[in-house]
Nucleic acid binder design. Structure first.
Lengths: 112, 112
DNA sequence: TCTCCATATGTAGCCGAACTACATGTAGGT
DNA sequence: ACCTACATGTAGTTCGGCTACATATGGAGA
């Protein structure tokens, strides 16, 4: 997977991962690996800043917890985040429809 | 459509547009509008440099032509470009499969 | 014990592709 | 004369994801 492919779609991935369950950053990375069938292996330097950005935007909220002596910052969707996720899903559908329309299934016939 | 969404997928779009027909830049932009159902309206500042980049990479080749007093640089796929297009189509399928796997159809059930 | 790995979070700085804005010129319609 | 469509192109900005690094705990194994 070329690195730039995710540009503009990362927010949707993070929001979707938090849909239905609050997770901490490291667990989000693992969840993305699993749900993508191993295709997505995001570095921490990508995920953690993105989560802070989403928090600044009010789409997620976080709380600290200590589990087994380890510090965890657990993120959950806010109501604004849920709305944003719905928008992201729609945008994703429109985006893939547009690209699929161009990529089609092969060469286009020369118009008669 | 948020601007960054195209990141990393533009090459595939351009190559696919040239698959089966040689076109000049302006016509490529119009073809992308049509085939995407109006969703893609790429500025010339995006398309022309991208075509030059593809030409530098040997994926397309161009020839000048004069049509109705207007200069046109017509691009066509090279054999390397055809191979690259096949790769791009595969990458696109893998990419959408990965993202769809994460976005799913809604909230994920808590594992029992 | 010491080392290594998995777990867990985070920052600084770079890279580069797509965008904005601009510049240039022809043809045709009003 | 003016505007729009056609047609190509460059300069510079933007900014999000990446690389690389820094930090710290717990557990397994040599």
């Amino acid at each position: 997977m070329k690195p730039d492919a995710l540009r503009g779609h990362l927010d949707a991935l993070l929001l979707a991962t938090l849909d239905g369950a609050a997770l901490h950053g490291y667990a989000i990375i693992e969840a993305l690996q699993q749900r993508s069938g191993g295709a997505l292996d995001l570095p921490t330097g990508t995920v953690y800043p993105a989560l802070r950005r989403l928090e600044r935007g009010g789409l997620v909220a976080s709380e600290w917890a200590t589990v087994g002596g380890r510090q965890r910052r657990t993120y959950r969707l806010t109501s604004a985040g849920r709305k944003a996720l719905a928008g992201e899903r729609t945008a994703w559908r429109e985006f893939t429809t547009a690209i699929d329309g161009v990529l089609g299934g092969g060469p286009w016939p020369t118009p008669a």
